[in-house]
Simulated assay, not measured.
Amino acid sequence: MIRVQNQDFDINHEYQLLASKAEAGAIVTFVGLVREMNLAKKVTALHLEHYPNMTEKSLRNIVQQAKQRWELIDVTLIHRVGTLGLNQQIVFVGVSSQHRREAFAACEFIMDYLKTQAPFWKKEHTESGELWLDANDKDTAAAKRWQR
């Protein structure tokens, strides 16, 4: 399941959907939050924009790549857009598989590719003004390690 939405999501509900598959032996989840500090600036909010068709296509591609690499039972990827305040949830990635190694690897892979390949535009609101963000070197290096 892939969703891009303005409204918040319920982690417990999403987990229960993943856990409803009897063959699942492992579920790994990740939730990204709006943090207070970035680039040595105090963040007050984060604004995310996207082009709907382009974004959903990109997210489907990332999930499909994960499913080709690992034996996965199910994947949930939810990404919020709009203006979010501090500590609000931005992204949920949930992966179920029979074994933990596949679930951990796939979850990490999806997040690494999401940070560098998904067409979201992020603008931080800080005490000193607004700043559009690009993928940083750390995220780019993390995604490169998955290249074959």
Rank of each mutant, 00 (worst) to 15 (best):
T116N: 09
F92E: 01
L114V: 06
H99D: 10
A66H: 06
L59K: 00
A26F: 03
L131N: 11
T44K: 15
Q5A: 03
Q64D: 15
E127P: 06
N87W: 12
L72E: 09
K67F: 02
T76K: 15
Q5C: 13
R3F: 10
Q68V: 07
A19M: 05
L84V: 12
H13R: 12
N136R: 04
T140C: 13
Y113L: 15
A45S: 09
N6K: 15
V75Q: 01
M1W: 02
N38A: 12
N53Q: 14
I78N: 02
K122C: 07
L114I: 05
K115D: 08
V95A: 06
R145Y: 03
N136M: 05
K67C: 10
N61I: 07
S96G: 09
I27Y: 05
A22G: 05
Q147E: 14
H125N: 06
Q89R: 15
N38W: 05
T126G: 09
E108D: 13
E127L: 14
K42A: 10
L33V: 03
Q98H: 09
G129K: 04
P52C: 03
L18E: 03
R100F: 04
T44F: 05
F109Q: 06
K41F: 02
Q64P: 00
G82Y: 08
I78F: 10
T29W: 01
R69H: 10
H50E: 08
I2H: 01
P119L: 08
H13P: 00
T116K: 02
Q7R: 09
K21C: 13
H79L: 13
I2K: 01
K57Y: 04
L131S: 06
S20Q: 14
I110S: 00
V81G: 04
W146Q: 06
L77S: 04
L46R: 05
S128I: 14
I78K: 09
I27L: 11
P52K: 13
G82H: 11
V75K: 02
T83Q: 14
K144F: 06
I27N: 02
E71C: 14
V91R: 00
N38C: 06
R145V: 15
G25L: 13
K144W: 07
R145M: 14
H125Q: 12
L59T: 01
E130A: 07
K21V: 12
I27H: 02
